[in-house]
Design a protein around this nucleic acid. Sequence first.
RNA 1: GCUGCCGUAGCUCAGUGGUAGAGCACUCCCUUGGUAAGGGAGAGGUCGACAGUUCAAUCCUGUCCGGCAGCACCA
Length: 658
Amino acid sequence: MITVRFPDGATREYAMGTTGTTVVESISKSLAKATVAMRVDGVLSDLSDEVPDGATIEFVKRDDPAALELIRHDAAHVLAEAVQELWPGTQVTIGPVIENGFYYDFYREQPFSEEDLRAIEKKMAEIIDRGAAFTKEVWSRDQARAFFETKGEAFKVELVDAIPEDQSIRIYRQGQWLDLCRGPHMRSVKDVGQAFTLTKVAGAYWRGDSNNPVLSRIYGTAFATREQLEAYLTMMEEAEKRDHRKLGREMDLFHLQEEAQGSVFWHPKGFVIYNQMEAYIRRRLDGAGYKEIKTPQLVDNKLWVKSGHWGKFRENMFVVPDEIPSTEGEQPEISSDVNFLALKPMNCPAHVQVFNQGIKSYRDLPLRLAEFGCCHRNEAHGALHGLMRVRQMTQDDAHIFCREDQIQAETEAFCNLLDSVYADMGFSEVKILLATRPDTRAGDDAVWDVAEKGLGDALAATGRKFEIAEGEGAFYGPKLEFHLKDAIGRSWQCGTLQLDFVMPERLDASYVAEDGSRQRPVMLHRAILGSLERFIAILIENHAGKMPMWLAPVQVVVATIVSEADEYAQKLVDQLKAAGIRAEIDTRNEKINYKVREHSVGKVPVMFVVGKREAEEGTVSVRRLGSDGQAVLPFRDAMVALMAEAAAPDLKAAAQAA
RNA sequence: GCUGCCGUAGCUCAGUGGUAGAGCACUCCCUUGGUAAGGGAGAGGUCGACAGUUCAAUCCUGUCCGGCAGCACCA
């Protein structure tokens, strides 16, 4: 006999070898009907598994949040079966659950089309209706290899070979079809339900390596109920309206065009946001003991060779010949021994040049050099994405030159500054990653050991949660990455802190220590926003274009109802502007409804509407974006309130005190 | 860069093997109207580029360029 425990503390006795199915059926028919899987001592398992003696088991119903992952995983299996049934000879590879859905990668000569997706969905519905049960089998390695080899499933054979020796090879069968899978699964394909949809097809490299063949990846999502699926699809549709590229055009913030691919043309309104952000960060850095500098855009290749960028980063650099091309021939020509300059892709080597001027003492450390560094990187065309991924960007960059024993304090100070800035911007959900040594790197492993440990320890000391991103570090050192999400949930790295023992060595940076000896400083590369472009894009998407008052390109529009109020409106705008408010006037020959609509669509946070009455009384009718009411206030009061509201977050306290 | 899809007016999109349309935006006229679209008129496009097929190409085919999604790469 075995003893089974339940979450409420109750226990029951069963015969050896009893499965979860038997247990649940012994409790109640209705519970058995609703249950699709179980947790055995907290681990999600097949309901058909034997229950070990003394285990605590908890039943997972289909509408349980924990079941969502199972629904999606099972849906991926059904997707694979459907594809192989429709197009025999298509090879299957892997099909995991991801955030908001699942995908399955296939290898097939003929790529899938959007119409194929609809056909596959139909087939999936059919398979689900057939309702085959999931059954688990454990195979030997040879059996699995032989089976998939015979079927011509080369990718599966590779997967079998990749499973560690100490792990069993599990096969899940669903009717005629089967797949290599770790599990767990629900009772049968019927439990997947019909609240699923296939969303897109895309190419993806086998095992995430661009040297490998490209597979066809089919994405889909599934929910417990149709209502949840509909709600999700509606939410995504709404989120797409917050796309910063769309809002940037609608709000006349910026544009991009072919002739300067990946470089931003900031329009007057967009550049207000840009300038406000720059001014804000400048104040914050100044307050945190940074010194701002400006370094050259175009730098002789000699420096990039020395810094290691030429060796490790060349394919991303824009290189310029230091010579006027000859136009004698058909094509412009340059001589073979020409000297090259490169547009800086990063600011660090230039900052070391500033550090290296004169002799630095340990008393100068930590020295924090900041720059709004305009960097150019030749990004792959497929990587470009509005303001999020550009070829010309401006980083809120800084390099902290310090001693090894100052790393922890500097890391802590940086994390606190970053938290404060992100809080000011309204971001609370920040994902932190510790990125470790990449394959292409400079510096000895011993140096990397010290750097990775130093950064990890310093971060851990601040008490923040973080994940490890294996092999994602910069070529000169490990880094912390601070990620924010865009409107549709894509994650973008914004802030970063990178620990670097390599660059000071390569560029011969040194300081005089207390004992008179020459020592190498450590360099911390860091940015809070990352790039102004990307951060502004995230801000636009998170605010759906309705920027907070201090960032709003136009803070108030004074709109007239009748032309008799034009003169009064002009007087108000003059006073608002004199008070530092970004105010515009609208005296056009249009109805007030039209003006309200247009400025609402333009996301202007406040409108002062004036007619004959207001002009006579010296008041304004204040209308706020998104509200339908309005309040009539004396102009002075309205202006003073607006001024307080328009203060940047770091100046708010001072503005309120004044 | 890779895979797939897409490319018609400033924007959103119809459409056809015989060189083009709508709505909004724009310009002008009428309207002075009290909080999310008042009415009328006008202007605007070598249908992404280049080849090919055809009597004839915006439409069919190919190549290139660009955009979008994902992958790879990255702030």
